[in-house]
């Protein structure tokens, strides 16, 4: 019998290995992120002063949608081959195992987004001095997106057409993150202090870290029953 912590590491390692074996799939949400952002200059105007004002919002909305798009893979494959059921049946606490899966998912989808974001900021003429804030909000915000999204995926994993439903369930819950994060980047771009927004994002992260795995585990048990 392995301890809780090593079960956590084993599952994390397994999920990361699986993600590495399907490398090409990982690029898709990132490509989506880049393409959505490059559509805005085409649709609105290539002028820097227009793009500059919408850049924080556009980057954050695109990040939200990219996170949503990648969520479907979180439990789907495991659900279809029965691994998820075995995970739920194991003697270890399900919230902890869920947390391992969400962490692995964030490492392969959220982290690349953070690395890409400064370059996309350049594409949209986001002022240089706002880039650290952009990265900070994404670092605090994308784990929240994964954690809250996991609840939605857990609720819809048993359904055949869960994709559209998932966005209906999850997007309203993402709104506070969007407001604080895009607000912080906007403020930073105009040269204001952003500590308040970052603290609020950090508080949201703490809240979702502590509560979301339990809600996800409860939802998974319902979907598996």
């Amino acid at each position: 019998m392995v301890s809780e912590l090593s079960a956590f590491y084993i599952l994390l390692k397994r999920d990361l290995t699986l993600a590495y074996r399907h490398r090409s799939e990982l690029a898709n949400p990132l490509l989506f992120f880049i393409i959505v952002i490059s559509l805005f200059p085409l649709g609105i105007s290539p002028e820097s002063k227009h793009l500059q004002t919408i850049a924080p919002g556009v980057i954050w909305v695109a990040a939200l949608l990219a996170a949503l798009l990648s969520l479907d893979n979180l439990f789907r494959a495991d659900f279809e081959d029965g691994t998820l059921e075995q995970t739920a049946l194991s003697a270890h606490s399900l919230p902890l195992l869920v947390f391992a899966k969400v962490l692995a998912h964030w490492l392969v989808t959220g982290l690349p987004l953070i690395i890409l974001a400064p370059f996309l900021g350049i594409l949209l003429f986001l002022p240089q001095h706002a880039t650290p804030t952009l990265v900070a909000t994404l670092t605090l915000g994308t784990p929240i997106l994964s954690l809250i999204g996991a609840i939605g995926v857990a609720l819809t994993v048993g359904l055949r057409r869960g994709g559209v439903l998932l966005s209906l369930l999850v997007l309203p819950l993402y709104i506070p993150v969007l407001i604080f994060a895009a607000g912080a980047v906007n403020k930073a771009a105009t040269g204001f202090e952003v500590a308040g927004e970052l603290y609020l994002l950090a508080a949201l992260l703490c809240l979702s870290l502590t509560l979301a795995p339990f809600a996800t585990a409860a939802a998974l048990r319902i979907s598996l029953s």
Binding site: L155, L169, L173, L207, A218
Partner: peptide, 9 residues
């Protein structure tokens, strides 16, 4: 579950 998540939110 969704309603309870909503009430926190």
């Amino acid at each position: 579950v969704l309603a309870l998540v909503g009430i926190v939110n």
